[in-house]
Design a protein around this nucleic acid. Structure first.
Length: 283
DNA sequence: CATTACCTGCAA
DNA sequence: TTGCAGGTAATG
């Protein structure tokens, strides 16, 4: 599912419902690989009795700050969702982790593909999670100059770079394609080849794509739901992602799909011409 | 950088 | 039946 806008909504909607509540017990855990750290036994033991103090997002991780110095970090990967349910609700076969709260409500971690992960982290583990990821693109620290510095050092193609979580955090396949369309840049452009003007376009293109995603409650292709179980609607506002063959909103040229870095990549062959740049450098 | 693995459901 | 999917880690 979930890229930055979806995880942002997931975290916010969870926080609105469960901050101040205490985790009484883990009442279901039928896919042990979901818990990455610490051991299953320690996880079950340490999480019991913890109060949920805050909910936030780092990269594509939902970060639930608990008492006693612990943090519950959840990653939805491709098909996960985390939702709050009333007492008495029964988890289905795809709900692999259930937290029972002190008011009887339950938190369901649902994931058909079982790629989702949960980590219970101490202060050191939380710090490591943070340093493992790059800059947050919606913070003031993310300026065109900073982006330019990040790009200048790399000779990789721009699309895979946008997906690299250690460089910029939170962008996934949808928002990478949307950002490049916004910036009118071809996905195969080399990162260190962008002019200052192109870097500025990419900077605003990234932010526009992410902010629009947040504005529309995230994108729901199939599985994504926020903490209330609600789908997003940003998929109704895509300019290129999943729009193969449809006319470009800017120029009317049919959107094309190609594979870049093993990922499906959607772009407008007219607005995002590679030939312009090749002509420019004399290739 | 490319390939494979991890899982399951769904559309072609 | 095959290929593909919002992600990431491991392996040549």
């Amino acid at each position: 599912m979930p890229e930055l806008p979806e995880v942002e909504h997931a975290a916010r909607s969870l926080g609105a419902q469960i901050i101040g509540r205490r985790i009484v017990a883990v009442t279901k855990l039928d896919w042990e690989r979901m818990v990455e750290t610490p051991t299953i036994d320690q996880f079950l033991d340490l999480i019991r009795g913890r109060e949920i103090r805050a909910a936030s997002r780092r990269a594509k991780w939902i970060v639930l700050t608990l008492d006693d110095g612990w943090t519950l970090a959840l990653h939805l990967r491709m098909s996960g969702s985390v939702t709050v349910h009333n007492s008495g609700s029964q988890p289905d076969q795809y709900t692999h982790l259930v937290l029972l709260l002190d008011d009887g409500r339950q938190v369901f971690f649902h994931d058909t593909r079982k790629f989702g992960r949960a980590r219970l982290l101490d202060a050191q583990g939380l710090a490591a999670l943070d340093t493992a990821h790059g800059i947050e693109p919606l913070t003031d620290a993310f300026t065109p100059e900073v982006l330019g510095t990040l790009l200048r050092r790399r000779s990789t193609r721009i699309k895979p770079l946008l997906l690299n979580q250690t460089v910029i955090a939170g962008i996934g396949n949808i928002y990478a394609d949307e950002a490049l369309w916004n910036a009118q840049l071809h996905p195969l452009r080399l990162a260190n080849s962008l002019t200052d003007d192109e870097v500025a376009r990419l900077h605003s293109g990234i932010r526009l794509a992410l902010l629009q995603g947040i504005e529309y409650g995230g994108s729901t292709l199939r599985n994504y739901r926020n903490g209330y179980g609600e789908a997003g609607s940003n998929q109704d506002h895509f300019n290129v992602y999943d729009q193969t063959g449809k006319p470009c909103a800017r120029c009317g040229t049919p959107i094309e799909k190609m594979v870049v870095g093993q990922r499906g990549t959607h772009f407008c062959p007219f607005c995002q011409r590679l030939e312009d740049y090749e002509r420019h450098i004399g290739a």
